[in-house]
Design a protein around this nucleic acid. Structure first.
Lengths: 217, 217
DNA sequence: AAATATTTTTAGATTAGACTAAATACTATG
DNA sequence: CATAGTATTTAGTCTAATCTAAAAATATTT
C-alpha cells in the first residue's frame, strides 16, 4: 500500500518532470517537498524498489509507466476536490490547495468516480489545470503565456502558472480570472510591462504577472 | 498537532465510554483499534501527557473535557461525510463507513462547516446517529430497542446499533430502513422472535435482529 | 485468604520516514 | 585537465507507533 509520503514524492516528481525532458534532480524534489536531499535519496531508492521510478545513483529519477499512473491518480483526485470546494463549498481558488493536498490521499475509487459524476465530468480545475479522466487521460488547451500574445489579438485567460495565494488574490483584485477576455493594448519596451484590457477594465500589469498567466488566443 | 492515530484512539475511547459509566479498559480499546494492549498502554500515557485523557495505571482511562471535544469534532466530521456520501454520491449506507474513516481526519474547519451548510445542517447521519453541530452539541431521539416495543404500538425505525455491512444489507433486503414504520404483531415466547409489520410488508425477525434496531414510539 | 487466571504494564526491538554530518561523485571554471 | 564548488549519497541517529515476551498488578475462584 502507498503511504502518504510516497504519494507526495510521486506527485512532486511528476510535476517536476513537466518542466524538463531529462531526469529529475534530488535537490529539486527536496525543495518541493520541504525535505533534506538525504531523505529524498532514501525515498528514491524505495520508490525504485517498488518499480515506480527509474533511479541510478547520481543520475536523478524518472517515473516509470506505473509511477506516472499513480501520480496521475493523485492529480486527478486533487483537481476534482479543488473543483468541488470551489463549485459547492464556497472556497475561493486561492484557498483550495492546502485542503486538496489532504483530500487527494483518500483511497476509494468509488468516491473519486462518483465525485467526478457529481461535478458533471469537469475537464479543468479552478486554476485551469486539466483533470485526468477515469482512464487518466487529459487534454490541455494549447495555451501560451500572456507575454507571448501579440498586440490587439483577442484571447481568454485559461490558467495560471503561479498558484500561490498571493498571486491569485492579486488577480482577484484585478478582476482577472479563468475565462476573462484579454487584449494587449501596448507593450512597454523599457520594462516589458503590459497595458491590457481585461474584461471591461483596462489596466497595467508587470512582466512578472504576465508570465504567470496562461491564455488561449 | 494531532496524529491520525491519536484521533483514532480518542474516537475509540469516546465510543467505548458510551456503554459504561466507569473508565474504559485497555483491552477493550485494543480490540476496537486492532492493536495489542501494550500499544494501547503507550498511547494512554501519551494522551494523558497531552491532557486529553485521565489515566491511572491499571485503572483504565476516561476522556477529559478537551478529549471529549476532540473526539466530538471527529465524530462530527465522520457523520457529515457519511451523510454526503449517501445523499450526493450514490453510496449505500453500508458502504460509507470505511471511506468516512479516512475523511474524518481531514483538517479544515472551513471544509467541515461548509459541508454542513451544503447538506443543510443535517441532524442525523444515514444510520440515524446524531451529528454534533458547530458547537459540538447534538440531540438524540429518545429511542429504544425494537425488543422493548409493546405489541401493536406504532413506532418508526430511527437507527441501528450494529453498523456492519452484513446487517445493513440484511435490512435492505427486508426493506427496513431509517423512517420505516414498524408495528409488532406478535412476540414468540419460545425464542423471542418477532412477527412485525414493516412498511407495507409483514415479516418475521429474530431477537438478535430486533436488539439491533432502534425505534421511536 | 490463598491460589489461579486474567489484565495491564514494562522492557527491549522493529519499521518508516526524517534528520545531521561526513564522504563521494559529478560539473564547471581557470 | 586539474581543481574548486556543488550535488548527491552514505552512515549513523531520532521519533512515533507498533510489536513480542516477560513481569507486575488486579480479579476470580476455590
Amino acid at each position: 500500500m502507498q503511504t502518504l509520503s510516497t504519494e507526495d514524492y510521486l506527485k512532486a516528481i511528476y510535476h517536476a518532470s513537466q518542466f524538463t525532458s531529462s531526469t529529475v534532480a534530488t535537490t529539486s524534489i527536496a525543495n518541493k517537498i520541504g525535505a533534506k536531499p538525504s531523505s529524498v535519496t532514501d525515498m528514491f531508492k524505495k520508490l525504485s524498489e517498488q518499480k515506480l521510478v527509474k533511479y541510478e545513483k547520481y543520475q536523478g529519477v524518472s517515473l516509470t509507466n506505473e509511477g506516472v499512473k499513480t501520480a496521475l491518480r493523485i492529480v486527478r483526485k486533487h483537481r476534482l476536490w479543488e473543483s468541488f470546494l470551489v463549485s459547492h463549498l464556497n472556497f475561493n481558488w486561492d484557498e483550495v490547495h492546502q485542503v486538496a493536498e489532504q483530500l487527494e490521499h483518500i483511497q476509494s475509487e468509488k468516491l473519486t468516480n462518483e465525485l467526478e459524476r457529481f461535478l458533471d465530468y469537469p475537464t479543468h480545475d479552478p486554476h485551469g489545470d486539466p483533470i485526468p479522466n477515469r482512464a487518466l487521460f487529459m487534454k490541455s488547451y494549447n495555451k501560451i503565456l500572456l507575454t507571448e500574445l501579440p498586440l490587439n489579438k483577442e484571447a481568454v485567460c485559461v490558467g495560471v502558472k503561479d498558484n500561490s495565494s498571493d498571486f491569485l488574490r492579486y488577480l482577484d483584485r484585478r478582476q482577472i480570472g479563468i475565462g476573462t477576455p484579454i487584449l494587449v493594448l501596448h507593450r512597454e519596451d523599457f520594462d516589458q510591462s503590459l497595458h491590457i484590457q481585461a474584461g471591461n477594465s483596462t489596466l497595467m500589469i508587470t512582466q512578472k504577472t504576465a508570465e504567470n498567466i496562461y491564455i488561449k488566443p
